[in-house]
């Protein structure tokens, strides 16, 4: 029983991290129909910025805020300077381009920050809470992880469902020409979509780094899990991404706890295959043909 609780709690925390990363992928997919493979190194760079500030003696929260804001700017910059030029070209170009960015940002980070492992602080405790005389697998930082991802998801849903800006962003994502005719500045909406996505990506970078080690490739493993989580959720909806992240986190934690941790990557891909076979549109999409 205690092992089950431990496994579930670990899975929830882990799932929230995947969820944050999946959210970032979903935001960009919705806005520009691109899977941003460079999301991981972009988040890595902003986490390094936070680390530099924290190592210079500033508080964790200053680093945290700077990482999020620099994520926002980096996302906007990448869209304006690089992605914008893809408009109208084949979809494979976008894949190659984001993979190229992945490699370039990696190399730059290794040059600027060095490629040794550096430890990253956590703002809250990393020891499990005491319940009676047992220690459970939920840490202060774990609670922070869960709460911050839920808050971000809530804010995104509010933005998209409740505001005119969100309505414009959705319209621009779904039909650029109609949106332009209705006065929506589509280019700005796409830039904003990338900026928001990179901000959420930065959050996932910080959450993964917290209490652990950072290194230019520390985010790379998350790409696969985050991508699978996003696909589970249907690649379209922010709540779907979070649900996909949680399901994946729980499933992988159960596999790791009861079967063997060496099977986790395999289990992840098996889950992906199973979902794609049963519901090709993802668990949370209303499957519907587009492209008229």
């Amino acid at each position: 029983m205690q092992q089950l609780i431990t496994t579930v709690l670990t899975g929830l925390t882990l799932g929230m991290v995947y969820a944050a990363f999946a959210l970032a992928l979903v935001l960009i997919w919705r806005a520009t129909r691109i899977v941003n493979f460079a999301q991981a190194p972009m988040a890595m760079i902003t986490t390094y910025l936070a680390l530099v500030l924290i190592d210079a003696g500033l508080s964790y929260w200053v680093g945290f805020a700077v990482a999020l804001v620099s994520g926002l700017l980096l996302g906007a910059l990448v869209e304006r300077l690089v992605v914008r030029h893809l408009t109208g070209s084949s979809e494979i170009n976008a894949v190659i381009l984001t993979l190229g960015l992945f490699i370039v940002i990696h190399a730059l980070a290794a040059l600027v920050f060095g490629s040794r492992y550096r430890s990253f602080p956590a703002p809250f405790g990393l020891r499990g809470f005491q319940v009676g005389d047992t220690t459970i697998a939920l840490t202060g930082f774990g609670v922070f992880t869960i709460v911050s991802v839920m808050v971000v998801m809530g804010l995104l849903v509010l933005l998209f469902r409740g505001t005119d800006l969100g309505l414009k962003m959705r319209a621009a994502a779904f039909d650029q020409e109609i949106s332009r005719l209705l006065g929506v500045r589509v280019g700005r909406m796409l830039t904003l979509g990338w900026a928001l996505a990179a901000l959420v990506g930065s959050l996932s970078g910080l959450l993964i780094a917290g209490g652990g080690l950072v290194h230019p490739s520390y985010m790379d493993g998350v790409v696969v899990y985050g991508f699978v989580a996003a696909v589970l959720g249907g690649l379209e909806s922010p709540p779907g991404a979070v649900a996909g992240g949680l399901i994946l986190g729980l499933a992988l934690s159960l596999v790791s706890g009861y079967v063997g941790s060496e099977l986790v990557p395999l289990a992840c891909l098996v889950i992906l295959m199973a979902v794609l076979l049963v519901r090709p549109g993802g668990l949370f999409s209303h499957v519907r043909a587009r492209r008229v």
């Binding site: 005119d164 309505l167 414009k168 959705r170 319209a171 779904f174 039909d175 020409e177 109609i178 949106s179 005719l181 209705l182 006065g183 929506v184 008229v292």
Partner: peptide, 25 residues
């Protein structure tokens, strides 16, 4: 205002969201 050929309804939005989009300008 230009209503293009092929009924430019944004099908991913609700009816009311489509209408709200029209008045944002």
């Amino acid at each position: 205002a230009h209503v293009p050929e092929g009924r430019g309804v944004i099908t991913e939005l609700t009816v009311e969201e489509n209408l709200r989009l029209g008045r944002l300008v």
